[in-house]
Design a binder for these strands. Structure first.
Lengths: 145, 145
DNA sequence: GCTTGACCTTACCACTGTTGGAAGGCCCAT
DNA sequence: ATGGGCCTTCCAACAGTGGTAAGGTCAAGC
């Protein structure tokens, strides 16, 4: 199977397959005399595994660890679980951050008349934080002059 | 004021200030005879504006529009609001995606014994989707086998 | 056997936003 | 004039993907 077929079968683009090989995420594929990469069903299986891990938001590094566990028949499911839960924690943290942004902005937008006048609390906020105020705990310089 | 002072005063790193100038987000700074960039209070003001917009998750492109509106004394607050709300929608979409990932993974992890045995539903899932099924739309479980 | 076209190869560039470093110039204080 | 700290530009890197160029290869048709 050539790379194009493997790509179709796995849902990972040929581009990405080469990239994963180059960065060592997957072992180098066998080659034909002409230099074409050759893949078997086992490889497609692995590629699919990778794609699903990516769909779950794992980074390439995370996937690397996951793959190691996957290949290790003597793995402990505790290790897999730990990896997954750590990733969930990361995800949740990102979500929290994004939600803070969204709610702040939404509150601001609610207070914006949204008409043809120029005055807008969103811009005011960006000029000088009021709602945001003390986000990163660096004290209170608060527009000293 | 040199770039270092402007950086400290605005919370945008000197590196980033140069980058923003290079990419046209901000106008080229005035220069001394020696080529040093020179900034005034107005510039620091703008830099702070940018930093806050970034803190709210706006992309550089979004900030570019925001800045345009900010500078436009004849702006309509409706335009600002529209921009902000569009960004909120993007944010919420990202959040939803992330949340889907997190809950899926969490569910999987709950079913994982997390012991020293190798069998683990997380890896099984990555091998062949069951919970995930059709990722982007309805989360219909298809365990037809 | 030759052409065509689809596919493959490597090797770059772009994007997004930020950080880091290197090599050298400038400014201020001493 | 020397030293330290700031400034300058350029180059690389991160993650991950898309794109493009220039060329080789394979399978088919005529």
């Amino acid at each position: 199977m050539n790379i194009g077929d493997a790509a179709k079968a796995s849902g990972v683009s040929a581009k990405m397959i080469r990239y994963y090989e180059e960065t060592g995420l997957i072992p180098p594929a066998a080659r034909t005399a002409a230099g074409y990469r050759v893949y078997g069903n086992q490889d497609v299986h692995m590629l699919r595994f990778i794609r699903r891990a990516r769909d779950l938001g794992f980074s390439v590094e995370g996937i690397r660890e996951l793959l190691g566990l996957w290949r290790d028949r003597d793995r402990h499911s505790a290790d897999v679980k730990r990896l997954a839960l750590a990733h969930v924690a990361e995800l949740r943290q990102k979500i929290r951050k994004l939600e803070d942004m969204a709610t702040t902005l939404e509150t601001l937008a609610q207070h914006c008349h949204g008409n043809d006048r120029p005055d807008c609390p969103i811009l005011s906020e960006l000029e000088a934080p009021t709602y945001l105020a003390e986000e990163a705990g660096d004290g209170h310089v608060r527009n000293a002059g």
